[in-house]
Design a protein around this nucleic acid. Structure first.
Length: 301
DNA sequence: ATGCCATACGTTGTATGA
């Protein structure tokens, strides 16, 4: 089973790129962030054409999260299960009232797509709201989820868990994304039972999931690893492969400033589509894996 | 190592992002 997360920075602007990537990586489940769409504008038909069911939680201009699955989606929860009445369309500026969380169950795995608030600057009300939001995520996990069951919280956490996850912690946005309190919030999630699936497969430095659009940051590999796949123990021991697909950060038209983070559960690569013979399937799978490694694993290209 | 890039909304500017 392949599960991925991708902050697409507008699903409307990125729809062709997302379709290309679904065909390229064939994830079973894709967690999406920053769709920047209202629910009634969610592109269900486009995903259905690619073989995916889409569940979406958005309010329009900003934020917006979704889950695309080709193995079914059940038990959908948005906004930590708060009622619609409690949500005031984010108009009060409280991130707890914004579309930043959606969960579902796909092929026996509880999947949670999160878009953690940015925080803007240390000490600002936005920064405090970011910490409050992360604490709310922790409380929801404690109340509604089971660390001994297979679960992944994937998404844009807007936190680089360690200095190995950022090109230069000192140069980083006046301290957000790398501060002690943000990292303590991630550590608190870890204590509940969430493991960093990508880091478990890749101890090396210099692997990032976001690069600034400007000043050639991507080509200089000046980035941060802020898109995470955090998995509970029963899922962690099933992870066989993880990558950040840098290919998706390249090319025209303009890509998202984030790259997808992918994990394979139970086996590496992906079961091929029906219609292949077993022998053809094995060969194609090896070629696919080789291509993936060559394309994704280079530190800088 | 910031808003120099990119997005939406709406109209040539403002808000937001990490």
């Amino acid at each position: 089973m392949r599960i991925a997360t991708w902050n697409v920075n507008s699903l409307a602007a990125r729809l062709d790129k997302v379709r290309w990537w679904l065909d390229r990586a064939r994830p079973d489940v894709l967690l999406l962030q920053e769709t920047k769409l209202a629910d009634d504008a969610a592109p269900h038909a486009a995903f259905k054409d690619c073989g995916y069911e889409l569940v979406h939680h958005g309010q329009g201009r900003w934020n917006g999260v979704a889950i695309a699955s080709r193995v079914g989606i059940a038990e959908v929860v948005t906004a930590f299960g708060e009622s619609r009445a409690a949500m005031v369309d984010g108009e009060d500026g409280d991130p707890l009232h914004e579309a930043r969380m959606i969960a579902g169950t796909c092929a026996g795995v509880r999947v949670v797509s999160v878009y953690v608030p940015n925080g803007r600057t240390l000490g600002s009300p936005f920064f405090e709201a970011k910490l409050t939001w992360l604490a709310r995520l922790g409380r929801w996990l404690e109340e509604a989820c089971d660390p001994s069951a297979p679960l992944v919280v994937g998404g844009d956490f807007n936190v680089a868990p360690t200095d190995d996850d950022v090109w230069d912690a000192a140069a980083c946005h006046g301290g957000t994304h790398v501060s002690e309190r943000e990292r303590a919030a991630i550590a608190s999630l870890a204590r509940w039972g969430l493991h960093d699936a990508y880091r478990a497969q890749h101890p090396e430095r210099g692997r990032y999931s976001w690069w600034d659009y400007r000043a050639g940051a991507f080509h200089k590999n000046l980035g941060m690893r802020i898109d995470l796949m955090l998995v509970t123990a029963p899922l962690s021991e099933r992870v066989r492969w993880a990558e950040i697909d840098r290919e998706a950060r390249k090319g025209k038209p303009t890509p998202s400033d984030h790259a997808p983070v992918v994990i394979d559960v139970d086996e590496p690569g992906h079961p091929l589509d029906a219609g292949w013979t077993a022998a053809e399937g094995r060969i194609a799978k090896r070629q696919w894996l080789r291509r993936q490694r060559a394309a994704c694993a280079r530190p800088v290209t």
